[in-house]
């Protein structure tokens, strides 16, 4: 049997190592900031959108590309059937003007969607619980194509549509060619 003192030391080391490993997972792998543990200094604002596309809870909220908060919840306003997005913003950015614009953007071609904030010029600032009035919805590819087709064939003739279809076909062929070239490399 191992000496009692040695056992105690080893168990102490073991438990300490476990605590360190958990701390490492929490702080280095997970995204816990020390300030978040002691009651985060942040405030909530909302914004209404016609269409949020693929926006998800916890998506980043950015100002000039810098992350200043995150989406905390998404639901539908029962009165006017628009999407309401609640955002949690860090208190260090509590001077956003009231005429700030919220835009749903996409990072990269197929990336995640996030909210971009563009500050306006008002002297008064958004407070906890305020709503951003100026918003711009997500770009939905299907709607975009639909609008494009409509405007192309708007003047009654179907010529525009077939022209557009031809353009699309050529575009897709080009894309495939480039892909196969890349693959060959």
């Amino acid at each position: 049997m191992v000496d009692r003192r040695v056992v105690e030391i080893w168990v102490g080391v073991f438990v300490l190592l476990g605590g360190l490993a958990l701390a490492m997972l929490a702080f280095m792998v997970g995204n816990v900031r020390v300030t978040e543990l002691f009651g985060a200094q942040e405030y909530q604002i909302t914004a209404q959108f016609d269409n949020i596309g693929g926006l998800k809870v916890k998506a980043p909220v950015t100002l000039a590309g810098v992350r200043i908060g995150r989406v905390s919840s998404i639901y539908v306003d029962q009165q006017d059937f628009r999407a309401v997005v609640e955002m949690t913003i860090s208190n260090s950015y509590n001077n956003l003007p009231t005429d700030t614009t919220a835009i749903i953007l996409t990072s990269g071609v197929l990336g995640e969607q996030y909210i971009g904030i563009e500050p306006g010029g008002e002297e008064t600032f958004l407070k906890n619980g305020d709503q951003i009035i100026l918003t711009q919805s997500a770009l939905v590819l299907e709607n975009l194509i639909g609008q494009f087709l409509y405007s192309a064939g708007g003047d009654g003739d179907t010529d525009g549509i077939s022209k557009l279809a031809g353009t699309l076909e050529r575009l897709i062929e080009r894309l495939f060619e480039e892909e196969s070239k890349k693959g060959a490399k």
């Binding site: 073991f14 438990v15 476990g18 360190l20 490993a21 958990l22 490492m24 997972l25």
Partner: peptide, 15 residues
């Protein structure tokens, strides 16, 4: 008691 500690160590050292 030991299992969660061991699993945390496994994940940490795996990273």
């Amino acid at each position: 008691i030991a299992m969660p500690i061991l699993a945390a160590l496994f994940s940490a050292i795996g990273v």
